[in-house]
Design a protein around this nucleic acid. Structure first.
Lengths: 271, 271
DNA sequence: CGCGAGCTTGAGGCGATTCAACTGTCGTGG
DNA sequence: CCACGACAGTTGAATCGCCTCAAGCTCGCG
């Protein structure tokens, strides 16, 4: 699979949240080295203190799983091309969790970038902020994940997760007319969405029958994003690319404001 | 309800993750002002950009809710005495979410502390790191929350959440022989744990009948923490206080390492 | 005393799980 | 070229965990 280089992917994401000067752009594009390859199921980034520094994902998907003592598994987050695996210096628990390849992957080491920024923070101010914004997006995804798991039905979970993948792929230019790579097995989706494999299958089948989605050999297709977003309670994203939703810490994008009144006082309507 | 002052609570937590010099201690204890009072259901911290700076919770409990379009609610996180509500400067999505009082509360403004640290980061180095560690603990709790919601049964969720409250209360000296304040209604617990009110009730009743817990008029009692932790898959916390689990970013405390192999390859045993 | 918020309990139903089998599609080696 | 195993996806049947609806209860408080 030949695709964009690591630097191009990351640059694309950063430019949607920050304006980079030539030095910064050059620094990111210095990541266009020959990537290291990782087979499925191998560990990209270790649990706890990190050895080799953060790595930029060039191709392939990964996840941060948490295995329970009885063998069950809950996936905490996913990593797509253009994402960074490993601790980028602030020791956040999520970033420190182990990263496991869900497909064959290619990554490049990104330690040099962070070292360079640390050496001259002034010169790379925007870049530093941009990278922080990417970290914030990760936390926002985590919040969405909580809502999905806590309060959405199986159909909504699947739809919502697919929409997240769609938008994340779009942010790195991997969407082509509603089609985007989605190489996860239904079992992995189950571990992600807190469902059983069988039920994920039935749910996807149902969405297929309703012509909401297609999934075949690692490619997903969403014909009508807005319609799917409706059933998933997925917040209406402005179709305009490059809207700086995370430029300096605005809202995540999923919540209604309003006081928290006990549910008894709230009314139900939708679905 | 008369309890410790805000500064004492926060100092206690910080001292368990960092060693503070006299300047830093004094700065924290400067938070022993007369607190502002908030009635139940009022908003402590606004959604999005923050107006009045972060506030330290002196007494009472709060949460960060997310309301879905159809009226359902998922609570993202809880705030207990000694916690900080509001954005402490890094614009993290969780910290920016609205904070709503679940009981009557008292808080003090903490902006001065952050301003002072920002003015002379060198002098307040340990304190700055300590506060960052508190932020990391919040993220670690979020990860635990994901696992609870995704892969635990109702009983485990309730037990796990109570244990989290127990340990958080203990960190600020609010536990007395297995007893600690737990002023949440079952409805709020339901919105937190992704369950229905009725089922939370039955689950708590069941735990009571098994003599695992007692909950009455805002006070919870866990007789055998280790036993409850066993049911809940709650990681064995060293009973030794002040173990610097977050001193500079070690592991969150909930995960088993190990490669992520598909569930089919894992064996099941417990429960 | 009467009201209301929170807690408790019962009955019935649906959504998701589990177990178990079967299908389809690869890649590999005889 | 086809037999084979491995792996992902699909489907059915039975069961269970949790939800919803609907009362009734308890306690604190005006």
């Amino acid at each position: 699979m030949i695709g964009p280089t690591g630097g191009e992917l990351l640059l694309r994401r950063l430019q949607s949240v920050a304006v980079l000067n030539p030095n910064e752009t050059a620094l990111i594009l210095s990541l266009n080295q020959r990537p290291r390859r990782h087979p499925v199921r191998s560990q990209i980034s270790a649990d706890g203190f990190d050895s080799s520094g953060p790595r930029l994902i060039v191709s392939g998907w990964a996840c941060r799983p948490r295995i329970l003592p009885d063998g069950r598994c809950q996936i905490l987050s996913t990593l797509l091309p253009g994402d960074l695996a490993g601790d980028t210096g602030d020791g956040r628990p999520l970033a420190q969790a182990a990263v496991i390849a869900l497909t064959d992957m290619a990554t490049v080491g990104a330690r040099s970038v962070f070292d360079t920024i640390a050496r001259d923070p002034g010169l790379y101010r925007n870049l530093g902020r941009g990278l922080q914004a990417l970290g914030r997006m990760e936390e926002a995804q985590l919040l969405d994940h909580v809502v999905r798991l806590g309060r959405q039905s199986a159909i909504q979970r699947v739809a919502h997760q697919l929409l997240e993948f769609y938008h994340r792929c779009r942010a790195v230019g991997l969407v082509d007319g509603g089609r985007f790579p989605m190489p996860l097995t239904q079992e992995t989706l189950a571990d992600m969405l807190g469902l059983s494999l069988v039920h994920v299958n039935r749910t996807i089948t149902q969405l297929k029958r309703q012509n909401m989605i297609e999934v075949r050999s690692g490619i997903a297709h969403i014909s009508d994003v807005a319609q799917l977003a409706l059933i998933a309670d997925y917040p209406a994203a402005d179709e305009k690319e490059g809207a700086p939703r995370f430029g300096d810490g605005s809202r995540s994008g999923g919540s209604e404001l309003g006081e928290y009144t006990p549910a008894s006082a709230r009314q139900q309507s939708c679905l």
